Amino acid sequence: MSALLGLLLNKYVMGAGAALVGLALAVFKAYRAGASKERQKQTQERLKARQVADEIDNDVGAMSSEESRKELSKWAR
């Protein structure tokens, strides 16, 4: 038991353990930062798509019924 305790209290073992914990924390922090950046990117893409959709809706809403039918007749068979 005392040999195990002596090994755990060895300064080299403690240093290696601290280095592993530090490395694990750095990896975790980088992972979280990457996930946050990706979420932000996707939010910006959704916002841009929503703005384009709103612009199209406004353009279609500004057309008269006759103009709308004329444009839609190109797409209907």
Score class of each variant (00 low, 15 high):
V21P: 02
A76R: 11
A49M: 06
L9H: 11
E71T: 02
K29H: 07
K41E: 14
K41N: 11
S73D: 10
R39M: 10
L47P: 00
M63D: 02
R32V: 09
K74P: 00
K74Q: 00
A18G: 06
G22Y: 01
K48A: 15
E45P: 05
F28D: 06
A16H: 02
R46G: 03
R32D: 12
L20M: 11
K29C: 12
Q51F: 00
Y12Q: 15
I56F: 06
S36A: 15
D59C: 09
A18S: 08
L23F: 03
G15I: 01
V27L: 08
N10R: 06
L7F: 09
V52W: 06
T43E: 14
R69W: 09
L8W: 06
W75M: 15
M1G: 10
V27G: 04
L9W: 09
L20T: 07
F28C: 06
S73W: 02
K70F: 05
V13E: 01
A35H: 00
K29D: 11
A24H: 04
V52M: 08
L47H: 00
D57F: 00
R50E: 13
E45W: 00
E38M: 02
E55H: 07
A24M: 02
G61K: 04
S68F: 14
T43S: 13
K70L: 10
Q44E: 12
Q42V: 01
K70Y: 07
I56C: 08
E38R: 04
L5Y: 11
L5D: 13
A30G: 05
E66L: 10
K70T: 10
Q44H: 03
A3I: 02
A49T: 00
S65A: 14
R50N: 08
V52I: 12
R69V: 08
A24T: 07
F28H: 01
Y12C: 14
L9D: 11
G34Y: 03
A62R: 08
R50H: 06
K41M: 12
A3D: 14
